[in-house]
Amino acid sequence: MAKTPPAKTIMQEGLWIENPVLRHTLGICSTLAVTNLMVNTLVMNIGLIFTLSMSCTTVSILRNITPMRIRMMVQTLIISSYVIIFDIFIKGYLPDISEALGPYVGLIITNCIVMGRCEAFARNNLPLPSFLDGLAVGIGYSLVLFGVAFVRELLGFGTLFGFQIMPEAFTPWTIMIMPPGAFFTLALYVWLARTYFMPADKGMVELRVKG
């Protein structure tokens, strides 16, 4: 077993250096769809951070008693349980948002980042570092999607969190709230980040096996 890295390294790697969206372009499926409004993005990101950190912790606690051959299935079940908890929670307390998010909450289960972190980190590390890793990766992921949502809501509706920001005369860019807007915005972020902040010199970790 590799030596557990210190907490600071875990946070740095998760938040920026190994940022799941900018570096690996992983796990964007379920969340990109709701980035046309900041509020939806916020709820979705909270759900992802919760699921990710808790599943990593649980996988790590059970790491010594999980049979190797069925570990994927066990991980999937752990992840699903947390997603169900979150789903019931928002159905109860935020029914409007739950309605708007539709099936995308359930799709956190197949978000590749969750499984990717369980496989790559939690499976070989102690519970506390695993929790921190899940938290850091989740926050790193959320920050980028917030960036996308910020641009899309501001240009698409002229609002942020539902408050009017742009002047009355501003013509909303309808394209930004339609699907292509999300693809273009994310592509721009990836481009900027890869050109100026994280040139792809480091060996790209191949985490891409999972859908």
């Binding site: 372009t25 693809f183 273009f184 592509a187 990836v190």
Partner: peptide
């Protein structure tokens, strides 16, 4: 350089979309 891989794919997908 920075757009290679996922970046350009996202843009192609956007246009296709």
């Amino acid at each position: 350089k920075g757009l290679e891989g996922p970046g350009i794919t996202l843009i192609i997908t956007g246009i296709l979309s």
